[in-house]
Computed example of a mutant assay.
Amino acid sequence: MSKIEMLNNAAHANVKIKLDRAPALGDDVMFCMTYPFEFRLVLSHYPIVVYRDKANNTAFPVALFGFEEGENLFLDNSGWNARYIPIMVQRQPFSIGSQQIKGSDERQQVIAFNPAHPRVNTTEGEAVFDEQGNYTPYLEKVIKMLESIDIGHQQNKLLVEALDKYELLEESTIAITLKDGTSYELVGFSTIADDKFEALSAEALKDLNDQKLLLPITMIMASMSNLGNLVDIRNAKLG
């Protein structure tokens, strides 16, 4: 595993980030975590499903890009072919870290990054610091993304708790058959059961609406129509 470093303008003065989209730059991912604040943009292209990471006993919504590990159907020689790229992809190679405040038991949030990520270099791309050691507009944009992601984690926690409370999730095996007869079965993902959603009481609907979760839930449901679009893209790649 690569060592994550805390970003600073002395050690990383010359760091640049490649912004092209390509498999070699880490974009060949089958799915990534997504958040309610971006669902409206995500559902314009991608199915949103819930992934249960049983090893870590966590669950969270993800945007689906392909049908097998390492497949991103939105990538080709011209880049990432979609109007919106989920924020968890956009923020790479940066993340939120923490470090202890000197002389205190408290910790503070800091910007961290993976220096071994293929986007990181010192010759091409967007600079992280300017000549005076100040944040560049690019890094300021990244910081806003990281702040949104931090809030998004809390939104996801509330969302999944509500979906579990009202038993709206059903673990599904998503079966896909391509025009050449190739079949795929996607396991480990859950979708929202239409019948259970339709059977929600007025009290439950009010509860979800009061938590500002009703709209995100309906957007997850609406996004499933994009599954057919993924099949079409994959079939087109078959020739």
Rank of each mutant, 00 (worst) to 15 (best):
P93V: 02
E69G: 00
F67D: 05
P86R: 06
W80L: 12
L73N: 07
N72W: 15
Q90I: 13
E68L: 00
L73Y: 03
F94K: 02
F74L: 06
Q92F: 00
Q90E: 14
D76C: 07
P86K: 12
L73W: 10
P93F: 03
G79S: 09
G66N: 02
G66T: 04
G79R: 04
A82I: 00
I87W: 09
V89W: 02
V89M: 15
Y84S: 08
F74T: 00
L75E: 01
S95N: 07
G97S: 11
S78P: 05
E68M: 06
M88V: 13
D76E: 09
G97I: 04
I96Y: 01
I85S: 05
F67M: 03
S95L: 12
W80N: 03
P93T: 00
Y84T: 05
E69C: 05
E69I: 14
E71C: 01
V89P: 00
N77Y: 01
N72V: 12
G66S: 07
R91V: 15
R83L: 13
E68R: 08
M88W: 03
G66L: 06
I87T: 12
F74I: 02
G66P: 13
M88C: 14
S98V: 03
L75C: 08
I96S: 13
F65N: 00
F67Y: 06
F65C: 09
F67R: 01
W80H: 14
M88S: 15
F67I: 05
N72T: 13
P86A: 08
Y84F: 12
I85V: 15
L75P: 13
D76V: 02
E71W: 07
I96M: 14
A82T: 07
N77I: 02
F94S: 04
E68F: 08
N72F: 13
F74G: 06
S78T: 15
E71P: 07
R91M: 12
D76K: 05
G97H: 07
E69M: 13
F65I: 03
Q92M: 14
M88A: 15
R83F: 13
Q90W: 11
E71R: 05
I96E: 03
L75I: 11
F74A: 03
P93H: 01
N77V: 02
L73A: 08
G66W: 09
M88N: 15
I85E: 11
F65R: 06
R83E: 15
F74Q: 09
D76P: 11
L64C: 12
F94D: 02
R83T: 12
P86F: 10
Q92K: 14
P86E: 12
S98P: 00
N72C: 07
